[in-house]
Design a binder for these strands. Structure first.
Length: 561
RNA sequence: UGGCCUAUGGUGUAAUUGGCAACACUACUGAUUUUGGUUCAGUCAUUCUAGGUUCGAGUCCUAGUAGGCCAACCA
């Protein structure tokens, strides 16, 4: 395991304590329980990494369980997307489970509770029941149907199941305590009538169990030992335990629920409802838009599973409210891509540069290292000629000595090529520079070993040869929100903080070695950032998504100016 | 006018359970560098407050303060 020596988080402490108390390690089992009603996002990634990480740490199985108890919101499409995302993150689930597989068992147990006088059919409207529920500071009052006799409850529940009633006319409730300080214990609903086909059970059922009644019992059926969920479920624990009390038998494992704080990422939102809003309003182009914090969006943006796992591992898990800075996520993707991404040259804001003393019509192929961080990555040939594109911001007519780039009369090295000196430049009528003229030192060729080639010049520029360059579409992304916590302001809608400039599309020039790049491949455009080939690419036009820029200390110096 | 949970640098997480507050990110210095990248070295804390116990408190006790969650036939 890679986290040898790492300190334990509070969940691991709980497990270690259980082990110390004699619980057999071989019985440990976890689960990741998504509801298939949307796409997984970076917040889920933390939960996935937590549960599957525990599985790896303790050599325990982890189930992927779909919490599919609400046919009104759930779809098969989401099941497939979720499976893809979990697998992409690199995790293997032991069993693929569905809460809907337990509908019969849940029903049988419910009948048992009715027989024991612990559940009853309530025939009021939801409004009436809400009134009787009380408030956090006032106790609730009993339903007039609370004392229906067992035979009547049984008959009614059976009729509910047979589809004899309309939606909303009856529910099954657990008979607990309408005066409980925990409102979830005030006779919670166990079943409601829903005449909707289910993505797996189709029309077999028209009564569906509620979350609280389903979740703990599902854990119990699967013999999950530690059922981990987010903090807002903490008050549910009492009910989770009450429901378990009704069905647990000796010799079988009794699951325990423990709660951790969900991870919040700065400058983004991770609420399925709000993400859906962004999609529906057309703020982004779908769930896998590279600006979305969904797993599919991050994948398309060019994030690697390793970077996301390392990120989740670094932020850890605890019980307090938090906002993790996106810069940490960016650090992890840079860290990984720095090791594995092949270096290439691309010019995104081109200005033409002509080498006046370079032989007319000549070209040559220069040796370039694919990745200085990985000697095994090998070399490639890059075409060079007397007409190049360089980045517009890499040239200034005049500049102070802090500007390490090209200026009139100044020298600079062309990456993998020659040392050049800027002589003059041409402008259009508006004063924009249209061309830079320079000379080169033929003896300064990179790697030639000559005295001139070893000369130190302060700046090195990337470039692309005009006659050889390929055009490509490049999409530059910035954070989707200008505010650190867009949904953290009372009385203000998160949509107010949308960054209008989160996407910039442009046409750039790339070196010809990229010609056959495939969707999903990541590269470092030297001195610019990491870019990933988008699925919108066609045979004659590549599209690149900027995953993240390189760290840019020059930009900071410029900003401070 | 209730119940439950949480408070450690700018951010996130630790602290062998009472023994020198550590790690990572960010920011800032400097060195190296044919990527202003990478790498390397360094700098940045009244542990929410006030009392108390103790040789010694982030940790234990008391009283406060602040924040979050709970009244869906959602999960």
């Amino acid at each position: 395991m890679k986290d040898e020596g790492r300190s334990l988080n509070f969940i691991e402490h709980i497990i270690e304590d259980d082990l110390l108390a004699g619980f057999p390690k071989s019985s440990l089992r976890f689960r990741f329980p998504p509801e298939p009603n949307g796409y997984l996002h970076i917040g889920h990634a933390s939960s996935i990494c937590l549960n599957f990480g525990l599985g790896e740490r303790y050599g325990a199985p982890v189930n992927l369980r779909f919490d599919d108890t609400n046919p009104a919101k759930e779809e098969k499409e989401f099941v497939e997307a979720i499976k893809k995302d979990v697998a992409w993150l690199g995790y293997h689930w032991d069993s693929e489970c569905y809460a809907s597989d337990y509908f019969q068992q849940l029903y049988d147990w419910a009948v048992m509770l009715i027989r024991q006088g612990k559940a009853y059919v309530d025939s009021q409207t939801s409004e009436q029941m809400a009134e009787q529920k009380g408030t956090p500071t006032e106790p609730g009052t009993n339903s007039p149907f609370r004392n229906r006799n067992v035979a009547e409850n049984l008959a009614l529940f059976e009729a509910m199941k047979q589809g004899e009633f309309a939606e909303g006319t009856h529910v099954l409730r657990a008979k607990i305590d309408m005066a409980a300080s925990n409102m979830l214990m005030r006779d919670p609903i166990m079943y409601r009538i829903l005449h909707r086909p289910h993505h797996r059970t189709n029309t077999d059922w028209c009564i569906y169990p509620m979350y609280d009644w389903t979740h703990g019992e599902s854990d119990y059926i699967e013999q999950v030992t530690h059922s981990l969920c987010t903090l807002e479920f903490a008050p549910h624990r009492e009910l989770y335990d009450w429901f378990l009390d009704q069905v647990v038998t000796e010799g079988r494992i009794r699951p325990k629920q423990r709660e951790f704080a969900r991870r919040n990422l700065s400058h983004t939102i991770v609420s399925k409802r709000k993400l859906l809003h962004l999609v529906e309003q057309g703020v982004v182009n779908g769930w896998d838009d590279p600006r979305m914090p969904t797993i599919s969006g991050l994948r398309r943006r060019g994030f690697t599973p390793e970077s996301i796992r390392n990120f989740a591992d670094t932020i850890g898990i605890a019980k307090r409210e938090n906002v993790v800075d996106v810069s940490l996520l960016e650090f992890h993707i840079r860290e990984h891509l720095n090791k594995i991404a092949p270096r290439v040259m691309a010019v995104l804001d081109p200005v033409k540069l002509v080498i006046t003393n370079y032989p007319e019509g000549e070209e040559e192929w220069l040796e370039a290292e694919n990745n200085p961080e990985d000697p095994g990555a090998g070399n490639r040939q890059v075409p060079f000629s007397g007409t190049l594109y360089i980045e517009r911001e890499d040239f200034r007519e005049e500049a102070n000595r802090k500007f390490f780039r090209l200026k009139l009369g100044g020298e600079v090295r062309l990456k993998n090529g020659y040392i050049i000196k800027a002589v003059s430049c041409s402008k259009d009528t508006d004063g924009n520079i249209t061309e830079i003229q320079c000379t080169y030192d033929p003896k300064s060729k990179s790697g030639s070993g000559s005295e001139e080639s070893l000369r130190k010049v302060k700046g090195t520029l990337h470039w692309v040869s005009v006659p050889h360059a390929l055009k490509a579409e490049v999409r530059l992304y910035d954070r989707l929100f200008n505010d650190e916590t867009p949904d953290g302001h009372k009385g203000r809608d998160f949509m107010e903080f949308i960054n209008p400039d989160s996407l910039q599309q442009l046409e750039g020039y790339i070196e010809p070695s990229l010609k056959d790049a495939q969707a999903g491949q990541g590269f470092q455009f030297q001195r610019l950032g990491y870019f990933n080939v988008d699925k919108d690419s066609t045979a004659d036009r590549l599209v690149f998504n900027r995953t993240v820029t390189l760290r840019d200390t020059w930009a900071k110096i410029e900003q401070r100016r």
